Amino acid sequence: MTDTTSPSGSSGAPSVAALAPLLREAVREAATLALPFFEPGGQTRARVWSKSGGSPVTEADVAVDTFLKVRLSEVEPAAAWLSEETIDDPVRLGADRVWIVDPIDGTRAFLSGHPDWSIAVALLEAGEPVLGVVFAPATGRFYEAIAGEGATLDGAPIRVSDRAALEGARITGPKPMQDRLLGGAARLGDAPTVTRVERVPSLALRLARVAEGMIDLGLVSKDSRDWDLAAADLILREAGGVVCDLDGRPTVYNRPEPRHGELVAVPRALCELTLAALARGNG
């Protein structure tokens, strides 16, 4: 793996630490392309159409994606590319470094004037996220992390909550998964009183809010993609949390099919209990 502290790794590639401020600048500039199309509390000014499968895309998604592909390719030319709005190029499977980009995570929120949409960018190195940014332009909240150096929100360090029990937990995610969790907890002899937090439209922001301790437990339905997860996954890891599947396995990125099953995003102290409750909820 490339040295993240020296100006460049042994291969001459720029270090992760050197790339961090350049990524920060690029994402903030990309946000200026999206914000003019965003109408708080109202419908977007952007042109909207449907992709195959029916999910919406806007001219803002495309503008941000195009800008970041050009800029980040200049920042680290050796890195391959995987983005929600770009045709997949299998060259990424053999690349040591890969940019993983969601130009607007939470497009439906963006369309309807809800502030919880984000721009999410991660850099993978040898398949692992080593640099990640999640920026919510409508609220100005900027989350970032470098592997091994912790996570920050607007430059200040963040940590997951210290909750180690479901009682009193703030949970969010798909209602069927919440119901399974609580039903399973009851079968295990617990009947916790929890606060159900309104579902966060941007999955990257949902995980980032677990990282900052605003949410204790985030649930993720199946069919999320690498670009929804990679940046926020690193931020959560660096803040003391974990993203894993229902068998406790960590997320794996840059596979031929960048799609995931059901996941949980939790402080490490809550992980075993959460997985046990979900498993019992299936029974």
Rank of each mutant, 00 (worst) to 15 (best):
residue 169 A to V: 13
residue 228 D to I: 11
residue 177 M to I: 11
residue 61 D to T: 15
residue 12 G to D: 02
residue 181 L to S: 01
residue 51 K to P: 12
residue 163 R to V: 06
residue 21 P to N: 09
residue 209 R to M: 09
residue 34 A to N: 02
residue 152 T to N: 10
residue 159 R to N: 06
residue 235 I to Y: 01
residue 55 S to W: 05
residue 41 G to P: 06
residue 130 V to A: 01
residue 59 E to Y: 03
residue 122 A to F: 09
residue 275 L to S: 02
residue 193 T to E: 12
residue 229 L to E: 03
residue 225 R to Y: 08
residue 48 V to P: 02
residue 124 L to E: 00
residue 132 G to W: 02
residue 124 L to V: 08
residue 220 V to E: 09
residue 81 W to E: 12
residue 52 S to P: 04
residue 82 L to G: 05
residue 138 A to S: 12
residue 31 A to I: 05
residue 9 G to D: 05
residue 125 E to C: 04
residue 144 E to D: 08
residue 30 A to D: 02
residue 273 L to E: 11
residue 101 V to F: 04
residue 100 I to P: 00
residue 252 V to E: 08
residue 179 D to W: 15
residue 208 A to E: 05
residue 194 V to A: 03
residue 18 A to Y: 01
residue 230 A to F: 06
residue 70 V to H: 14
residue 156 A to E: 13
residue 218 G to W: 00
residue 171 I to Q: 00
residue 279 A to Q: 15
residue 238 E to Y: 03
residue 198 E to W: 07
residue 79 A to P: 05
residue 76 E to A: 13
residue 244 C to L: 12
residue 216 D to T: 07
residue 129 P to E: 08
residue 67 F to K: 08
residue 159 R to Q: 09
residue 11 S to M: 09
residue 143 Y to F: 10
residue 280 R to F: 02
residue 124 L to A: 06
residue 146 I to M: 13
residue 81 W to L: 11
residue 141 R to L: 14
residue 196 R to E: 04
residue 114 H to Y: 14
residue 85 E to H: 05
residue 112 S to Y: 06
residue 282 N to P: 09
residue 187 R to H: 01
residue 52 S to V: 10
residue 18 A to K: 10
residue 222 K to G: 15
residue 191 A to L: 11
